[in-house]
Simulated scan of single mutants.
Amino acid sequence: MADRIDQPKEPRRSFVPRVSLGGEDGFGKISESIARFMGTPRFILYLTLFCIAWLAWNIWAPPDLRFDSATNGFTALTLMLSLQASYAAPLILLAQNRQTDRDRVQAEQDRQRAERNLADTEYLAREMASLRMAMSEVATRDFVRSELRNLLEEILEQEDEKRRATSDDGEAGTGVPRP
């Protein structure tokens, strides 16, 4: 399975990066893994320990076992660090170019996703507008309640009128209506 570029790499315990050389992009993957390693605190620690060991050996080792003279300003160490820097710069640039390409693809995907979201939002807005227009023709809860209140008031008024009419038509004092 291909490595996902949107997820961080899992930590490895190996000093040598594990990258397959298969495919046309093998060198790019190797350069990226080296550039990634060079950007870690572990690399700086290893480089520092290497320089300390180099300097310690060439200062305190027996004179016949020393290979870089302090009197010459540790020329071999300077050459080693220059060589490392001369390889690091192009590898880092290559890794940055690959990252730029991935960022460009990601930006295009984000743009397409944003366009889809905008189209969906516009569609939903049109649907809501059409529902609002349709709702203007439908009776709302408050409208139905007010109509029911009005009907209830009319019914109560009619009952009051009937009671008054029956009490006026009845015999005086009996409260019984005439037949």
Score class of each variant (00 low, 15 high):
Glu147Lys: 13
Trp60Leu: 08
Asp25Arg: 11
Asn58Cys: 09
Ala125Phe: 10
Ala61Lys: 09
Ala95Trp: 02
Ile59Asn: 03
Met80Arg: 10
Arg66His: 03
Glu115Cys: 00
Phe27Glu: 03
Arg12Asp: 02
Met135Pro: 05
Leu131Lys: 11
Gly73Thr: 02
Leu91Gly: 04
Ile59Phe: 11
Asp101Cys: 05
Met1Thr: 08
Ile155Lys: 13
Asp168Pro: 04
Glu108Trp: 06
Gly26Ala: 06
Leu65Phe: 04
Val138Gly: 06
Arg18Glu: 11
Arg36Phe: 07
Pro177Met: 03
Ile44Ser: 13
Leu49Ser: 09
Glu137His: 15
Asp25Ser: 09
Thr121Gly: 00
Asp110Tyr: 00
Met80Val: 15
Glu161Tyr: 01
Asp68Ala: 08
Val16Lys: 03
Val16Asp: 00
Glu127Trp: 09
Asp120Cys: 01
Ala119Phe: 09
Val19Met: 02
Trp54Ile: 06
Trp57Met: 05
Ala95Thr: 04
Leu94Ser: 14
Gly22Ile: 04
Ala53Phe: 03
Glu159Asn: 14
Arg163Lys: 14
Arg66Glu: 08
Pro62Ile: 01
Glu159Ala: 12
Arg145Leu: 14
Leu21Trp: 09
Asn97Leu: 14
Phe43Pro: 07
Arg42Thr: 02
Ser167Phe: 06
Val19Pro: 03
Leu77Met: 03
Ala114Glu: 11
Pro63Gly: 05
Asn150His: 13
Asn72Val: 01
Ser20Val: 04
Arg104His: 07
Arg13Phe: 07
